[in-house]
Amino acid sequence: MAIVELEKVSYAYGKSKAAQDEAISDISFKIEEGEYVGIIGHTGSGKSTLIKHLNCILKPTCGKIYIDGVDVWKNKATVAGNRQNVGLVFQYPEYQLFEETVEKDIAFGPKNLGLSADEVRFRVARAIEMVGLSSSLLGKNPFELSGGEKRRVAIAGILAMDPKILVLDEPTVGLDPAGKEKILNIIKYYNRDENRTVVHVTHSMEDIARYADKILIMNGGKILSFDSVEETFKRASMLRSVGLDVPKIYEVFLKLKDKGFDVPLNVYTIQRALEVVKNIVERKVKP
């Protein structure tokens, strides 16, 4: 059974005419449990609107949303249950911190779930470990931390709710390369080691190509394509036609092919590229 299922979901923003309003129309897709799905698309393509539906921040104008088999808008209890199942990390999540200590802030979500004090403490300890921060930070004021640390505390606040589905909206934007790597590793850990479903919205094809299983491309409020990473990049011209970049390394192999070299095209990470080139070189040397 799919853990996320959207059935002909459409959403229109009231009667407001503001330019930044995104809307989505007729969206249907399924995500299986444990999958890592990347959502990519331009600003205004509807990706932010789409993910706000996953934990009932927005109610679809029409269509149905099933999370873990439950029709989420059935009644109040299903909406509350859905917020527990789906953890949503917004853009610049560090701006939502408000408690006087890191510990209290991470505990905000679990407390809202009505967990016991012991359970909350346990969840907080686990969450701070998952995001790779020292537990000595727990007593600190979150506003004293560095930007990257603040963001990881904010993500810990979501992880402490132990969501079955973790949804992140551009979690690495504005960070330095090291900070970016740390965040990507947290997401990968939650997906691979905790075996949770991850939905990761980003502008960076290179981030997505490394860890995602599938890529969902949004364009003009509609799904342009939803397929495995390999299949998606096979249609590089489609990506370009909507102004999305393919990973640079993929471009290199595309150009090599154009030059008449017999290279495969399913190359979109450095690891894979290294394998491919070494293979060719070795094959040429041996016979």
Partner: peptide, 13 residues
């Protein structure tokens, strides 16, 4: 509006 959405998704009511 963004902050309200973010806190809502942390179970805030």
């Amino acid at each position: 509006e963004k902050i309200i959405c973010a806190q809502k998704s942390r179970g805030f009511n």
